[in-house]
Design a binder for these strands. Structure first.
Lengths: 239, 239
DNA sequence: CGATCGTTTGACAAGGGTCAAAATGCGTGG
DNA sequence: CCACGCATTTTGACCCTTGTCAAACGATCG
């Protein structure tokens, strides 16, 4: 446990992320670290959370990627959000009262338990900020799907994802892994896998970004940002 | 005040709505009623809440419709949610940290103040349920925009809106007012006004529903429901 | 009665979807 | 080390839903 909280070692993604969302005291960090020993592994494609499942202890992604999906009656799928290391599950009302919404592992996923937070604590602040951010992402997803072209959706999503990865401290540069198939990307962006493929080729041809074998390179960040009206990340409000 | 809480008179929309979301005691209802005297009127098109505005007392819509919008750099607009009588504003983290998101009156809108709720009270439960529902609506909006056709978006949105109007007790039958232009509808559903118009004509021609002069008639509810895989409203979880 | 806003219509364009097949990559077993 | 099987990516041809642009039509209001 001393090892886990040693400042010279990198924090786990969710401790990094929560530390970036609220000033966490040593006590909170220690509790979080101790909970990390309660781990769980899901293989790719495993439904980690089924729709009815809301009686479940809160967890955090330690490694691997997952996504929350909704399946329509005829099989069409919409991915509501992609979950990356450091993300929380079931912490603040992640329940799905109705409809077939579930969380599925995209890669092998390691999760760990996280403590409940008492009201008024720094940890509670961090959870609230996390929930507020999640809501922002959902809103941005709505905007992407409603009013952006295929190129813009791809760019906007990738920039957002990079920012999220940096928040969790698992990425620093303009080159990083995105272990999702083009089909998953398509279901996240409201497109078809074929069209995602063609759009990626265009972006590559124009020297904007590349996406090969699960690795993204942002080749021309300024231009990418201007193409989607990049909004500087503001401070997160807790509510 | 006695008049406002007289059980023989209809409750205001937000008291009806909150009563349907949690069992409210007489005390809570009385407080809500007393707050209703602090009213405010916005004319159509008034920006009721600007993006930066998050220091603002919580309010409820007493009458009229509004919507929350986001404007892209080149002017494209996405409506994130439509607000109807009984809806709450600024009660649980309705802030917008960044981006140009604002709440705009669609018709003349009357709002009133609502009290803060102490933790553990019935009122707090109702607010939490309300926030959970709002999140559901946002998720459903994402699904509509990402994976539904124009017809399905229209139908799904209208059915959802009717259910919401009934929750607030301002509508009971299959015929009700929707005081939005086709252009607003288009921006809510990720379409153009022209296409909304043509889609409505098809729905009308097929005897499914009509939409004329701000009034909707659901002509064939069973068929409408089956066309969008209608999900029976489940119980709302508080989190 | 003219202005203005919203709805409706028409002709045409284009972004993105569909279907099917080929190519590529990759893990596994022999 | 090779061959096979499977998932994923890529390509091609074609089509359909939805968008664009522009004008006509209709209602509402000082």
């Amino acid at each position: 446990m001393t090892i886990l909280t040693d400042p010279r070692l990198p924090l786990s993604p969710h401790r990094t992320r929560l530390s970036n969302l609220a000033r966490l005291g040593a006590a909170a960090l220690t509790v979080l670290a101790s909970y990390e020993r309660d781990q769980n592994i899901s293989p790719p494609r495993r439904e980690m959370v089924r729709e009815g499942d809301h009686i479940r202890k809160p967890q955090a992604l330690v490694s691997g990627w997952a996504f929350e999906q909704h399946i329509l009656a005829d099989g069409r799928r919409q991915i509501l959000s992609v979950l990356i290391p450091g993300d929380l599950i079931g912490v603040r009302g992640h329940q799905s009262p109705f409809g077939s919404r579930s969380i599925v592992a995209a890669t092998q996923v390691v999760t760990c338990a996280v403590p409940e937070a008492d009201i008024g604590t720094d940890l509670e602040d961090a959870y609230a900020a996390s929930a507020a951010l999640e809501k922002q992402y959902l809103i941005q997803q709505t905007i992407r799907l409603g009013r952006m072209t295929a190129q813009e959706r791809l760019i906007d999503w990738i920039l957002e994802t990079q920012a999220r990865l940096m928040l969790a401290g698992v990425v620093s540069g303009n080159e990083f892994a995105v272990p999702l198939t083009q089909e998953l990307l398509a279901d996240a962006l409201g497109l078809t896998n074929v069209h995602v493929n063609r759009t990626l080729q265009i972006l590559r041809r124009d020297g904007l970004l590349s996406f090969h074998g699960g690795a993204v390179s942002l080749l021309d960040r300024p231009r990418l940002q201007s193409m989607v009206g990049y909004r500087a990340p503001g401070r997160i409000e807790t509510g």
